[in-house]
Write a protein that binds this DNA or RNA. Sequence first.
DNA 1: TGGGGTTAT
DNA 2: ATAACCC
Length: 449
Amino acid sequence: MERAETWAAGSSPVHDQVVPAGSSSSRVIVHVDLDCFYAQVEMISHPELKGKPLGVQQKFLVVTCNYEARELGVKKLMNVRDAKEKCPQLVLVNGEDLTRYREVSYKVTELLEEFSPVVERLGFDENFVDLTEMVEKRLEQLQRDEPSALTVSGHVYAINLHDILHIRLLIGSQIAAEMREAMYNQLGLTGCAGVASNKLLAKLVSGIFKPNQQTLLLPESSQDLIHSLNHIKKMPGIGYKTTKRLEALGISSVRDLQTFSSKILERELGISVAQRIQKLSFGEDNSPVTPSGPPQSFSEEDSFKKCSSEVEAKNKIEELLASLLNRVCQDGRKPHTVRLIIRRYSSEKHYSRESRQCPIPSHIIQKLGIGNYDVMTPMVDVLMKLFRNMVNVKMPFHLTLLSVCFCNLKALNTAKKGTIDYYLTPSLSTTSRSGKHSFKMKDTHMEDF
DNA sequence: TGGGGTTAT
DNA sequence: ATAACCC
């Protein structure tokens, strides 16, 4: 593998900082970012596509593409028309079904969790891992087994081996290299990594050398890094809306935000957002790496030019629901809430969705683990009630998106017979022992209950 | 702009 | 239920 790079231009002043081992104030975080993820998954599924310019299409967009395509001028989220014009040889595959991408995405997260359980997902192709504890262990092991045996492989710039913070980050970058090696050996995937002292900096630095490389940020270079962002909208955590409001205040650069009056910013954006983003502008981010665990929700959506009848809507909802039920079945947990989301056509207005949600009736929840067709009809009925609550079907309407979401997921019941929980659990102490449903219990695995 | 996700209010 | 953020 290529060597790890350290992003630091100038010479670093050598001031020894004494931070006690295990000090809570200094963390080692890695951000792992897969290269053009959907395109990589497609090339693994279809090896004959390797070497060709490849784009992944959703509706009329090329949502991502491999580096061969990028060299020929194709960009992410480019129109299919423009992309074909730029690059007539472009091969397109449909990527509207996310199933395979989702599966591979979780394999990556699980692989990273083997290094350290504290892994936070960001989308399908990015993960943060808090390496602080693992680094501490390796440091202790080094001091015990091989005193003064820490070697730097490859060229690392401006590192001070007498600075314990540098050493800890360096060990973090060694772990990052092992993670990328494991991703390649076990899953065939390449990606970037950034190692730094917090999530913001790790994420920013992971993108410095692209593709399939990793970068270590030493604390002395963090100001250079954040000022290399030429606009505040590039700062993760400052989105479309906040950018507009900041621009209205005359703030456009990172330094503008750093030097802007905190009082006025708090008045304009609220204390929470103001304080958070102003700290971000200094490269400060104390947000923890929060283990993602299993997903909080499952959703499926479809967008289209026009849906204007109830029958049409019902057909689309049935399609979304069928896929969702398979996913819920695989997951094992049971959702207790269902939500329907729509987007209405509007000529100008920016992108707004409406939703209605309700609890899933308990008799439907019980049938969720096992099958498909018993649940299909009553669930569609529930969803169509939500639909008619949002859309007056007696009036003309024009929708451009439908989405169904299952959330409020609860683990399967582990209540054991004879315990208080058992008798307080309706599905166990009442329904499953009484009458017509009891035969179903024979088909399902009792240890699941 | 797609087809997903999360948290805060 | 919506709005903001992330990919």
